[in-house]
Design a protein around this nucleic acid. Structure first.
Lengths: 98, 98
DNA sequence: TAATTTGGTTTATAAAATAAACTAGTTTAC
DNA sequence: GTAAACTAGTTTATTTTATAAACCAAATTA
């Protein structure tokens, strides 16, 4: 069996990290994701929008202690895509003897 | 422990596939890699050069049945990088409960 | 000898990641 | 009360990467 395609939306270090984090916590705000991923705000902002456009995450905006707060959570669609990505990727990680 | 950086040279579907294949067979020619990865010749050629520049693979050129033949094999450096990449990536694939 | 095929490389274009600059408002220090 | 610094982002521009298209050289086939 040949190697499967890797979902390009998930095959990105930052987006994958975000999805991995959200898979664990089910809800996280922008600052948390920024710290955990060591990303810049600009990059994170862009990548979150892409995940949202794909309906892999939901983004809610509110205010907390007078400051704007952006909260993200993974959708069922996102979880499915993440799980499928992981399964496909595993094929790449364990070399096949031929 | 925060998520580790993923070696950008390996975090590419095609280059990762090539490395994965080479880790299994230790030597493979251009056509084999092209078929197994479903890549175009142009893309494969470019990515092999990048892996070579990083000393992750060696490229030998010869002739077989009158046709040019390009044979690739992974270096020790390449294998180390591949193994490290795999270890780092695993952190992304299993969500952490927090 | 004129296509067609093998086995690629090089160059050009499209897409993606990243960084820099900007927006909007808040808090702190004078 | 106002200037400086900070929070929490977004937008735009630049760089990098991936991909596709075009090309090359030789071999084979018709």
């Amino acid at each position: 069996m040949a190697l499967k395609e890797l979902n390009p939306l998930l095959h990105s270090q930052l987006r994958l990290a975000v999805m991995s984090l959200l898979a664990g916590v089910k809800e996280a705000d922008f600052s948390f994701l920024k710290e955990e991923t060591n990303s810049t705000a600009g990059n994170l902002s862009v990548q979150l929008q892409k995940l949202k456009e794909a309906d892999y995450i939901e983004i809610e905006k509110s205010f907390k202690n007078n400051y704007p707060q952006t909260t993200c959570k993974m959708t069922n669609k996102g979880l499915s895509a993440f799980n499928e990505y992981v399964e496909n990727l595993k094929e790449y990680l364990v070399p096949k003897k031929t």
